[in-house]
Design a protein around this nucleic acid. Structure first.
Length: 705
RNA sequence: GGACAAGUAGCUCAGUUGGUCAGAGCGCCUCAUUUACACUGAGGAGGCCACAGGUUCGAGUCCUGUCUUGUCCACCA
């Protein structure tokens, strides 16, 4: 054995061996009970960052269950990540002085496709370097034709079941990116915005959005507000920057009499709340801001201005005309912005596809309340329930090209939508019209990834779905519990009638060494390969689970990585001591470990008892998703009990203890294997053993004696 | 406005159902050894476990309140 452990050479060698031997496939344990994890598909638009290395806990679960004899499947994939990817790609185009509008739909789609293919290769290499035992033969991409087919089928079924409707609603719209978003995708920022107290005839009302006043189709007060009773139902003559106008006064419960003057302007086209009020009172929806973020012709001389400049110009002119009572410059509010570019989100009326989520959400709540699905750590249940209990219909249309184009065609003759499972209808079934127009929009990427567990299993291998669904665990970072996990529960139950997984396991965020969030713009993103090359994959894996309670955020810690690299060095040297420096006359571990049973030295008894205890602790820790407990128990036992105490004591009676040393070490390696797969394989192979790989060794159960 | 998490040695963090739980890694100090391992071993210094009350024979560990930090949610014009 080399004096120094060569991690790079060893890691490459074993990964290749495992993969080529087919050990990652569930078929290595054909008779075992199924144990399944679907890998949360990383975005195909960029290489992995170090946070993705947290997949290690899935590998721990998978390797552990494989050793338990389960028919274990870890199914990998990658996500086209619709809008995310298009944004990344558009930035690249921007650098070349181009924009998405320079290309037609097909060309742009093809260009992004090629871009994504490169990244997919990089990503797969990274996953291999971390030692992840995914079944590569079942790898899926969210835009694979068979996946698309399944997603279309779901859409059609939902449409037929009346769960999908086409409607004009106020949507969250980013005028820079030219697309709408779901509520979850809107970020809110604290701002200080001037609050204008403006005169509407005899009334004074407070607003920040002067520029939407041309879309006002009423003013509203609270029905029981005594100050304004005489105005309710009347039409007021008001003076505006565009001349005299008339406006109706209505009363609505949604108005808070405490805010401002208790009077609000109602702009159904540009506010969610106002739209609701408008519906209740049958108000006209008058859109004054266009999808380009500029005021339209209804704004008179302000037409063509961007929202911000229009607001300033209107304020100036109103002040000159004496229409502004006062301005509160220190008013604090929250403004919705695009999570990618920070542009203020415009609520705009747009016709989109929506999912009625009420009943789906109810079922998703039920299965968790009934503990058919359990969430770890449990406190996330609160977040999950709160969101689902207050959920609103889900806008799934996106005005981009990168994604699955919605399989819906419009017939102008009948004023009707025709939805299919993807095939292009050659004519309208009602009127025989042949010039149908397809909706250019694509699905929200979460609509398709919400179907990932059953879609991948149905698409990867015949019988796969029947055998491996429902899956055992979904493990991901807590930040996509609502975006993704909750949607998978809803869509999974809807499509298959069964829950998509039994346990939801949520890990924390990996921060940079200073405890700051990693982001491309800050330039502090760490590539997992760098860490692997510096410390070894085993150390990188161990460092992520050791010393931080599972589920909590943690900073990337070089001292901890060093400590874990030192631990691999310790393991290597224990190995050298036991294997390389064995006395020539020593007995060795035999098949049934009988040589150990005959020993009665109290040191031997003690270490064997501690080994058993450690084995139990590790199994229990993994079962309960308390990975840090398992890592801690192993580190403590191997280094401080076995190496520091037992091995030191054994030096006096080396010949006799050799089988015990071999037994304890081999068993320790087996227990450690899910955490540190490479070095454990390397050393296990050098010890007396049965079988081709530690990967397939039996998990050392309780009380091996 | 609400929710969740965290506040424990200089730093980073463990301490599931209250009673060897006052711990680990790194750092620091002393000593040892060419030892299987210096990516080492033995030992040591360092903490009113955020603060204030309370429950209890007994509380980092339970309850109440306060403060600080972080994250998330919410249509306040």
């Amino acid at each position: 054995m080399d004096k120094v452990y060569d991690q790079t050479k060893t890691e490459e060698k074993w990964y290749k061996f495992w993969e080529e031997s087919g050990f990652f496939k569930p078929e290595v344990n054909p008779d075992g009970k199924p144990y399944t994890i679907i890998l949360p598909p990383p975005n195909a638009n960029a290489p992995l960052h170090f946070g993705h290395a947290m997949y290690v806990v899935e590998d721990i679960l998978i390797r552990y269950h494989r050793m338990l004899g389960d028919s274990t499947l870890w199914l990998p994939g990658s996500d086209h990540a619709g809008f995310e990817t298009q944004v990344v790609f558009e930035k690249q185009l921007e650098k070349e002085g181009k924009s998405r509008f320079d290309y037609d739909r097909e060309t742009l789609y093809q260009m992004i496709w090629d871009f994504v293919q490169d990244n997919k290769g990089t990503m797969e290499g990274q996953l291999r370097k971390m030692g992840f035992s995914v079944d590569w033969s079942r790898m899926k991409f969210t835009l694979d034709p068979d996946i698309i087919k399944i997603v279309y089928k779901t859409f059609k079924k939902m449409f037929d079941d009346g769960l999908i409707y086409r409607g004009t609603r106020i949507v969250n719209y980013c005028t820079k990116h030219g697309t709408s978003f779901s509520d979850l995708e809107v970020l809110y920022e604290d701002r200080t915005t001037p609050l204008y107290y403006i005169k509407y005839g005899p009334l004074i009302l407070a607003t920040v959005r002067l520029e939407t006043k041309f879309g006002d189709t009423a003013v509203a007060v609270h029905p029981r507000d005594t100050r304004y009773q005489q105005y309710i139902g009347k039409e007021l003559d008001i003076e505006t920057v565009l001349g005299p106008a008339k406006i109706k006064v209505i009363s609505d419960e949604a108005v808070d009499p405490e805010f401002g003057t208790g009077v609000v302007k109602v702009t159904p086209a540009h506010s969610m709340v106002d739209s609701e009020i408008g519906k209740r009172h049958n108000l006209e929806v008058r859109q004054v801001i266009g999808f380009d973020g500029r005021l339209n012709e209804k704004a008179g001389k302000f037409a063509g201005m961007r929202v911000k400049e229009a607001r300033a110009a209107i304020a100036k002119e109103m002040q000159e005309k004496g229409l502004i009572e006062k301005i509160d410059e220190s008013y604090k509010n929250r403004v919705g912005v695009c999570y990618k570019c920070g542009t203020e989100i415009e609520p705009l009326p747009l016709e989109q596809w929506f999912i009625k989520v009420g009943d789906l959400a109810k079922k998703a709540i039920e299965v968790v309340k009934e503990e058919k699905i359990k969430i770890y750590p449990k406190n996330w249940e609160t977040t999950y329930f709160r969101w689902l209990e207050n959920i609103k219909d889900w806008n799934i249309s996106r005005q981009i090209v990168w994604g699955m184009q919605i399989p819906a065609w419009f017939c102008k003759n009948c004023d009707k939508w025709i939805v299919t499972e993807g095939e292009t209808p050659n004519k309208c079934p009602s009127c025989e019209n042949v010039s149908l127009e397809r909706d250019p929009d694509v699905f929200d990427t979460w609509f398709s990834s919400g179907q990932w567990p059953f879609a991948t299993l149905k698409a990867s291998r015949p019988g796969g779905f029947e055998k491996f669904y429902p899956t055992s665990v979904i493990e991901t970072m807590y930040d996509i519990l609502l975006f993704w996990v909750a949607r998978m529960v809803m869509l999974g139950i809807y499509s298959t009638g069964k829950i998509p997984f039994k346990d939801i396991v949520l890990h924390g965020k990996v921060l940079d060494p200073l405890g700051k969030k990693m982001s491309k713009s800050k330039g502090n993103v760490v590539n997992p390969i760098e860490i692997v090359e510096q410390y070894g994959a085993d150390a990188a894996r161990m460092a992520l689970v050791y010393g931080t309670a599972f589920g909590h955020d943690q900073a990337l810690s070089h001292p901890k990585l060093q400590a874990m690299r030192n631990f691999t060095n310790k393991l290597w040297n224990i190995g050298r001591f036991i294997i390389e420096f064995a006395p020539e006359d020593a007995k060795h571990l035999d098949k049934n470990a009988t040589a150990i049973q005959s020993l009665s030295n109290s040191n031997d008894q003690e270490i064997l008892a501690k080994l058993n205890k450690t084995g139990e602790a590790v199994g229990k820790a993994i079962d309960q998703y308390r990975f840090h407990d398992g890592a801690d128990a192993l580190y403590e036992f191997i280094w401080h009990e076995f190496a520091d105490k037992y091995i030191e004591q054994s030096k006096d009676r080396r010949t006799e203890t050799q089988p015990v040393l071999e037994y304890i070490f081999r068993t320790s390696l087996e227990l450690l294997h899910p955490f540190m797969p490479f070095i454990t394989e390397e050393l296990w192979q050098k010890l007396p053993h049965e079988g081709k790989s530690i990967m397939l060794a039996n998990w050392p159960g309780k009380n091996p004696f």
